[in-house]
């Protein structure tokens, strides 16, 4: 999402500004401040809960998430739904499946989409950004050329609304869960690329690099042993924030009908998009997945924001 670029460039700058000369102490310092941040703690707790849910959820689920065990009790065509009761804590969904089980199993699917997509965006983006940043820092005409070409490409990707990018991917690859992951991941590539490049450039101008250079350390060594590791922190912060976006974007794709092709497999985005059709009769069926999505996204955002503030010395109170 290009709306993130504002943060990208800023974050990139921030890391370079820190007075510390090695990455490790920066992280120690940041972690110390993170621990005292309420935002970070809440965020981390939510994430921990969500991850735990995603891992053990399917085992905790009292019933199969796909079996339409009670399908003769729900009459969607008459607006008759079954709410929470002793055997079904969240009630039944529109096809007579246990909503609680679907919610639990859905957590894993949702996390899977978010994590895989972000990993993809992170990997490809970091490669491109790293390439570009390294080329530019190493300098020379060739380096600048490489940087220009890569950045043109990245700008192009940024120009496209993320949903359209996703649609294009889905059109070529066909509809599948993999497509959703790729689509959401591809959207994040330019963010990570720009971020890493910016951070590397900023690091390139920092004192310790200049010092190292003055001492005669070879440029290539500086890039790979100093600049690159020190530039990764904003990228990791961004990854946390991107996880939140990924989950929401995946939900939007489901709403547009580009989600997981097998609607029997529960995923929060699909569940939310679907339940809007019978919101009047069974609002809770929309509320469960919506809350799931919002709270999880909130968790990742909180932690990401807190990390960002922790890394930003200017925002210290």
């Amino acid at each position: 999402m290009s709306t993130k670029t504002d943060k990208i460039d800023r974050l990139a700058e921030l890391t370079a500004r820190s007075e510390t000369s090695t990455g490790a102490s920066l992280w120690v310092e940041a972690f110390r401040r993170l621990r005292s941040s309420k935002m970070a703690i809440i965020g981390a707790c939510v994430i921990a809960l969500f991850v735990a849910l995603a891992i053990v959820g399917p085992w905790l689920a009292p019933y199969s998430a796909e079996a339409q065990t009670w399908r003769n009790e729900v009459f969607r065509n008459q607006g008759i739904f079954v709410g929470p009761r002793a055997e079904n804590w969240f009630g039944l969904d529109h096809l007579g499946r246990d909503e609680f089980s679907r919610f639990l199993v859905g957590a894993r699917q949702t996390l899977l989409v978010g994590v895989v997509a972000t990993l993809l965006g992170f990997t490809v983006g970091a490669l491109l950004g790293g390439l570009s940043g390294a080329a530019l820092t190493l300098g020379g005409r060739v380096g600048r050329r490489i940087d220009t070409v890569v950045m043109r490409f990245i700008d192009m990707m940024l120009a496209l609304p993320s949903l359209l990018l996703a649609v294009s991917v889905a059109a070529v690859l066909g509809q599948s869960l993999t497509t959703v992951m790729i689509a959401v991941g591809v959207v994040q590539i330019p963010i990570f690329a720009r971020l890493l490049r910016g951070a590397m450039l900023a690091q390139g101008g920092s004192d310790y690099v200049l010092a190292a250079r003055a001492l005669g350390v070879r440029k290539r060594r500086i890039v790979f042993s100093q600049i690159l590791p020190n530039s990764l922190s904003p990228v990791i912060v961004q990854a946390t924030l991107c996880l939140a976006t990924a989950i929401i974007e995946a939900a939007a794709l489901s709403y547009l009908g580009l989600g997981n092709p097998d609607p029997a497999v529960p995923e929060w985005g699909v569940m939310l998009a679907q339940s809007q059709e019978f919101f009047d009769a069974a609002p809770m069926l929309a509320v469960y997945p919506a809350l799931g999505i919002i709270i999880t996204a909130l968790g990742f955002t909180l932690l990401g924001e807190a990390m960002r503030e922790a890394l930003d010395p200017k925002l210290r109170s």
């Binding site: 999402m1 290009s2 709306t3 940024l158």
Partner: peptide, 20 residues
């Protein structure tokens, strides 16, 4: 200043939002 930049960059995201 940075807010102005951000507004410019928001347009791409706005279009995705507009589809929805």
């Amino acid at each position: 200043l940075p807010v102005v930049t951000a507004i410019g960059l928001l347009t791409g995201g706005l279009l995705s939002g507009a589809v929805l």
